[in-house]
Simulated assay, not measured.
Amino acid sequence: MAWFKRSDKGILTPTEAKREVPDGLWFKSPAGKIVHTRELKNNAYVVPEEDYHVRIGSAEYFEVLFDNNEFTELDANMESGDPLKFVDTKAYPKRIKETQAKTELKDACRSAYGKMNGLDIVVACMDFAFIGGSMGSVVGEKIARAMDHSLKHKKPFLMISRSGGARMMEAGLSLMQMAKTSAKIAQLDQAKVPYISLMTDPTTGGVTASYAMLGDFNIAEPGALIGFAGPRVIRETIGKDLPKGFQSAEFVLDHGFLDFIVDRRSIKSRLTTLLKMLQ
């Protein structure tokens, strides 16, 4: 019965010598597809085969859009204060500092200018990782200043929205950003400077009710959730059941609120073609 016996104990690897798989090496999609992060990055952060668009932030969008990832950032050090002394505590400033440390971002929006396939463009992009991409005074001001740069230099402006809505810790000051950014968009229109609004998953609340829906061209990524209030709130308000997927980009396109849906892998070439046509 020698074949049931192990004659050579072999070499055992000490526990301290074992190598663990690094965190973040693989990505698992909601459908269970496993993709190496390098392959995901090379595919514009879209899962191959199933075309699932992974939520990404400003750093990744700038990498996708700007030639050689070269750009000049605008107002990079602008950050929120606590103008309303929220609830007479330091809770809001503390949360800002904690989120800055966690995300390595100053606030929920970054803006920059550079070249996209050789064309000048200004891009403002929201970061959902920073307090749900909420629109506060800094977000509104950075967008307004980026639009000022577009106006001054006659460069097309691209707004990439991903937000849960207004940042209510700033109350009325947050809501006023809707009016401020909308007024800047009117100036872009008067100067005939193209404004393209790209809505990604999710785009909701006061952002949807202002600059996200005011583009010369309103476009979206596949499957993006786009709406003002959530389904439960709307259902309770109107007292009716809602169509399945009524806030998806595809539903919104079918009902005339979008010009087209664009795959992230082709967005750079599609935008370049569009801007050349406008020129």
Rank of each mutant, 00 (worst) to 15 (best):
Y92R: 11
V87N: 11
L105D: 01
K106F: 08
K90C: 06
S80L: 06
Y92N: 02
T72G: 05
T72W: 02
E79L: 10
A101S: 02
T89K: 09
L105F: 03
K102D: 11
K97G: 00
K102E: 14
K90V: 08
R110V: 03
V87E: 12
E98N: 10
F71Q: 03
E73Y: 03
A76I: 11
K106E: 14
K85R: 12
D75R: 14
A112S: 04
Y92A: 06
M78G: 04
A91F: 11
I96D: 03
A112V: 00
M78W: 13
Q100W: 06
L84I: 13
K115M: 07
F71N: 02
P93D: 08
T103N: 01
K115D: 02
Q100K: 10
L105T: 02
A108W: 06
F71S: 02
L84C: 06
F86Y: 15
K85F: 07
K106L: 07
V87C: 08
A76Y: 15
M78L: 15
F86R: 13
Y92F: 15
S80G: 00
A91V: 11
Y92H: 10
K97A: 15
G114N: 01
D88P: 03
E73V: 10
D88Q: 14
L74T: 07
K94G: 13
E73M: 13
V87M: 13
V87Y: 11
M78C: 00
M78I: 08
G114I: 03
G81Q: 01
G81A: 01
R110H: 04
D82L: 03
Y113P: 07
E79A: 10
T89N: 07
D88M: 12
N77C: 09
Y92L: 09
D82C: 09
I96T: 08
T99R: 11
D107F: 04
K94L: 14
D82K: 08
M78A: 11
A108M: 05
Q100C: 07
K102C: 03
T99K: 12
K115W: 00
K97M: 05
T99V: 03
D75A: 14
Y113Q: 08
Y113G: 04
K97F: 01
D107N: 15
P93W: 10
D107E: 10
T89V: 02
A108T: 02
D107I: 05
T103A: 03
E98M: 11
L105W: 03
P93F: 08
K85N: 12
D107H: 14
R95A: 12
N77V: 04
I96Q: 06
F71W: 12
P83Y: 12
Y113N: 09
E104P: 05
G114P: 04
A112Q: 05
S80V: 00
T89S: 15
P93I: 06
P93L: 09
T103M: 00
E73C: 02
Y113M: 08
Y92W: 13
L74V: 07
F71R: 02
E79M: 10
D88W: 11
G114R: 04
D75C: 13
V87D: 09
D82I: 01
S111D: 01
K94P: 04
L84W: 05
R95D: 12
P93N: 08
L74C: 07
K94M: 14
